[in-house]
Write a protein that binds this DNA or RNA. Structure first.
Length: 893
DNA sequence: ATATAGACGTA
DNA sequence: CGTACGTCTATATC
């Protein structure tokens, strides 16, 4: 890369790459399975390999003229002197890792890269010192580090390369990126970290203060010093907590400040890349048994030599963006038949405000942007034809479908959706907005769309840029789906399901206002009665919905025994209240519990009432990209958590009714699908047999475990086994099981052991699932859906245990999600093909709710049960049960 | 208006 | 100290 200096002749812009050797090697170590990277002599090389590929990639991509790698040393740093608990609680570094650092240093030496350590300091401090020197010397500096503390180094000329989930996923963080993500300029990032604390380094912060609050304070008072100076002006609990923990905050800040004035054995100018020592590389790579890497290393050298001679005058921007403000039909006529059209859209609420359509031909991008509300009928027809006759790429297609409908037209087959693609590639991300995806997959920043503006002289270039990003994203994402064997799941399942969900949302579900109003009236009455009774029991009013006020009443006024601790006091949840009632028999507790119950019900009914639309139906939104396991979720309102467990709660389901033109609601659900999948995937013969007996599953299993005849299984034994079975699929501990069953921990442990004696295959399976996930980095469902769990290798015991439980559960919950999605899609397809009016309205994880015409009832039941039970081929049948009725309540079974 | 904690509904 | 979700209320602070 070149730039012109003031004298007018070209000079090379110097670029310095500094890598945190330890942190990058550590990530590589955990990302790559050691058994694939062990030499014939037994030397583990996964960290060496991972580090080397990562470094090569950085060099190839950024072509630095100067480069250095910094390492920590064994000598404790000054930070530990200041705070002995620093980084305490971290797991011991694995032995196989330690040995590889030496090898990495050897690799660096053979390829001509400088490495640096300094006793008493951390690699971070070396990075900071070099970054500062580089910046001052006018160099462009890239700092590769997995430590967020390095963000404080960012300036106009210093960027941080921060690894994402996988080692291949490297994000460039500049000032804008940090501000976008954390809400403060980079130099203040450590101020936030000091306030919130740092778990990994065992540095507690101010309780109750998270990233948002910290960022707000720091911005308001212009830095941490200002925050502390004005601590007395910050009122309330948080202000109090801040003043109380000032010492912690100051300590955190001292510890996370990186030193920029270390005496190092090298100056930045010394850090040029030396030629690769080919012979040494050959010898070392022979030992390491790296073969493919050799060529990349040698190529690197060749490029470095020629780098200085190339006069790089090519324009990088080869795309010409054509923006047309009129002549829509004329533009359309020029679109080639085989062009792939990327669509970007801009909304005001749900309404489509503007649209950009983009396609690329050889070296040129073409884009047309328009505001659909100004289209004439003919033009609108043209647009429909254009979109239906071409392959289309979108972002959030379901939203676009709804918006198109509001404009007065429907789009049939919309092909690709980059949001779904990104979701399948990384289902744990909580956000798939276009700017986020652009940054992550294209390393291109995209301005976050401003609020939509009205036409008059508006600038469409931003929207055009978005359409181009949609187009480019698909190229990248689909390729990645193919290499990860996810393309089939995407095309064959998620895309069709998205179109199905659009239909579900469009239809909505009819509500009986009479039932809702009746319920509201009753519940309001009951709430008032319980409230009154509660007040009388203690002799005064109190806000029953305030845990804080309740604590005062229960533990101070009434001096009741303390319950389990929460963050700021003692719990007042239902479980604890029941326990307190058993101990104290105080009537207040009864009334409080009744009040909780009734007010919760009323709140649900109120929510439903306000969600009923003008058509008398509720149109929920199904989220297809939020649940990391592959499940759907439902929002505004959530129709997947309507009460079902109590008769009282079920009455709310009585308000869900067939709409005009329909006669019944039909529900069909999989019975015990997760346990069946456990049986199938674990191949546990006893469990499969228990299912095949056709008798009550938990009862049969209890008889097997306790070696008694089925008739002798008591309800208590049955429920113990039931709890154990479901608990296991969630990674339940002996402690948790003991809590749930009200038995001692040793008893719970014994129960688990006994269970596994009979169902050994289940235990083996669960163990294997976690191990495989640890090695591969992800779990997979039967249909190949992945969930990445990098924390399986975390040094943090808590994080690791959490990831292990998620790993146990993800393949089971995820496979069940795959199956019901497929079943739903097939049911809808068959209903459509048969020309039936009956239709699917809701999906509740293992259940479908349909609205049925009486004359079609038998056929629909047949279709639903056949299709659902046939949706997957397992070693045991998928049982489906169904119910029909005049409401969701009556359709229960 | 917005963030956080606590509680609780579903599979 | 059991997985996966969403929503409501209180509370504190803007």
């Amino acid at each position: 890369m070149k730039k012109r200096n003031s004298q007018g002749h070209t000079m090379i812009q110097q670029k310095l790459l500094i890598i945190d050797g330890h942190s990058m090697a550590f990530r590589a170590f955990f990302a790559l399975p050691p058994e694939n990277f062990t030499t014939t002599t037994g030397q583990a090389t996964n960290a060496v390999y991972g580090f080397t590929t990562m470094a090569l990639r950085l060099i190839e991509e950024h072509q630095p003229t100067h480069i250095a790698v910094a390492f920590d040393t064994k000598v404790k740093s000054f930070r530990s002197d200041e705070y002995p608990e620093y980084k305490a609680g971290r797991a011991e570094t694995p032995q196989e890792f330690k040995g590889q650092i030496g090898l990495i240093k050897q690799v660096l030496e053979t390829v001509g890269i400088t490495w640096i350590t300094k006793d008493g300091f951390e690699a971070d401090d070396i990075l900071a010192t070099l970054a500062k020197q580089g910046d001052e010397a006018g160099m462009k500096v890239l700092v590769a580090s997995g430590d967020r503390d390095s963000f404080q180094l960012i300036t106009d000329n210093v960027n941080v390369i921060y690894p994402g989930r996988t080692p291949a996923d490297l994000k460039i963080m500049d000032a804008a990126a940090v501000e976008e993500r954390y809400g403060v300029p980079p130099q203040w990032y450590p101020h936030i970290a000091a306030l919130t604390g740092e778990k990994a380094d065992n540095l507690p912060g101010v309780p109750g203060v998270g990233e948002k609050t910290a960022a707000q304070w720091v911005m308001k008072y212009a830095g941490l010093a200002g925050v502390l100076a004005n601590a007395d002006k910050i009122g309330g609990k948080r202000g109090e907590a801040l003043r109380e923990h000032e010492a912690d905050v100051l300590r955190n800040r001292r510890l996370n400040e990186l030193l920029t004035n270390l005496e190092l054995p090298y100056n930045v100018a010394d850090l040029t890349r030396e030629p690769v020592n080919r012979q040494a590389v050959n010898e070392l790579f022979d030992v390491l048994e790296f073969n493919r890497l050799r060529k990349r290393v040698f190529d690197l050298d060749a490029n470095a030599d020629s780098n200085e001679e190339i006069d790089d005058t090519r324009t990088i921007e080869t795309l010409e963006l054509k923006l047309v403000s009129d002549g829509f039909q004329n533009w359309i006529s020029q679109v080639p038949d085989q062009a792939v059209l990327a669509v970007a859209s801009e909304y005001v609420k749900t309404e489509l405000n503007a649209l950009a359509i983009y396609y690329a031909t050889e070296g040129t991008g073409h884009c047309y942007a328009l505001e659909p509300r100004f289209l004439s009928d003919t033009e609108q027809k043209e647009l429909e034809d254009l979109l239906t006759s071409h392959a289309v790429i979108t972002h959030e297609a379901k939203r676009l479908r709804h918006a198109f409908r509001e404009c007065g037209f429907e789009i049939g087959e919309l092909a690709e959706d980059v949001e779904l693609e990104a979701y399948l590639l990384g289902p744990d991300q909580r956000e798939y907005s276009l700017p986020t995806l652009s940054e992550k997959y294209l390393q291109r920043s995209l301005p976050v769309a401003e609020s939509a503006q009205l036409s008059l002289l508006r600038d469409f270039s931003e929207l055009a840029g978005q359409a181009q990003v949609v187009y480019d994203l698909h190229e990248v994402l689909f390729k990645q789906l193919e290499t990860t064997q996810l393309a089939e799941l995407y095309r064959g399942l998620e895309l069709p399901v998205q179109a199905d969900l659009y239909e579900l949302e469009k239809h909505g579900v009819a509500m009986s206002m009479d039932v809702l109003n009746q319920l509201l009236e009753e519940l309001t009455e009951q709430v008032e009665v319980a409230e009154e009774a509660a007040y009388n029991a203690i002799g005064h009013k109190v806000n029953l919905a305030s845990p804080m006020q309740l604590q005062t009443v229960l533990f101070e006024e009434l001096q009741m025994p303390k319950t389990k601790k929460t963050k700021r006091g003692y719990t007042t949840n239902a479980e604890a209240l029941v326990e307190l009632y058993e101990k104290t028999q105080h009537p207040f507790l009864q009334h409080l519990l009744a009040h909780r119950d009734k007010i919760k019900m009323r709140q649900i009914v109120e929510g439903l009432i306000s969600a009923v639309g003008a058509d008398g139906r509720i149109h929920t939104t199904f989220q297809q990209t939020v649940a990391a396991t592959g499940r759907l979720s439902s929002t505004e309102p959530n129709l997947q958590n309507i009460p079902a467990r109590t008769a009282e709660g079920m009455r709310i389901r009585g308000a869900f009714v067939p709409g005009t033109g329909f006669d019944y609601l039909l529900t069909a659900d999989y019975s015990q699908i997760e346990m069946r999948l456990m049986a199938h995937m674990s191949k546990d013969e006893a469990l499969i047999e228990a299912f095949k007996s056709g008798e009550d599953l938990h009862r049969t299993m209890a008889a097997m475990v306790f070696a008694v005849p089925v008739e002798e299984v008591t309800p208590a034994l049955r429920s113990q086994i039931k709890a154990t079975s479901y608990g296991l699929a969630y990674g339940l501990s002996s402690y948790g099981l003991s809590q749930q069953l009200g038995i001692s921990v040793p008893e719970a442990r014994k129960l688990k052991e006994k269970y596994f004696e009979r169902f050994g295959g289940v235990g083996r399976f669960l163990g294997e699932v976690v191990e495989e996930a640890r090695e591969r980095g992800f779990t997979a469902t039967m249909m190949g859906r992945r969930r990445y769990l990098p924390d399986l290798n975390s040094g943090n015991t808590n994080l690791r245990a959490m990831a292990e439980r998620a790993a146990l559960n993800a393949p089971i919950q995820g496979t069940a999600a795959d199956i019901i999605k497929l079943a739903m899609h097939l049911v809808m397809r068959v209903l459509r093909e048969r020309g039936l009016a009956s239709r699917v309205l809701l999906q509740v994880h293992d259940e479908l709710v349909l609205e049925v015409v009486a004359s079609e009832l038998n056929e629909v039941i047949q279709i639903v049960t056949d299709v659902m039970s046939g949706a997957a081929e397992l070693s045991l049948p998928l049982d489906v049960s169904f119910g029909v009725g005049a409401s969701w309540q009556d359709a229960a079974h």
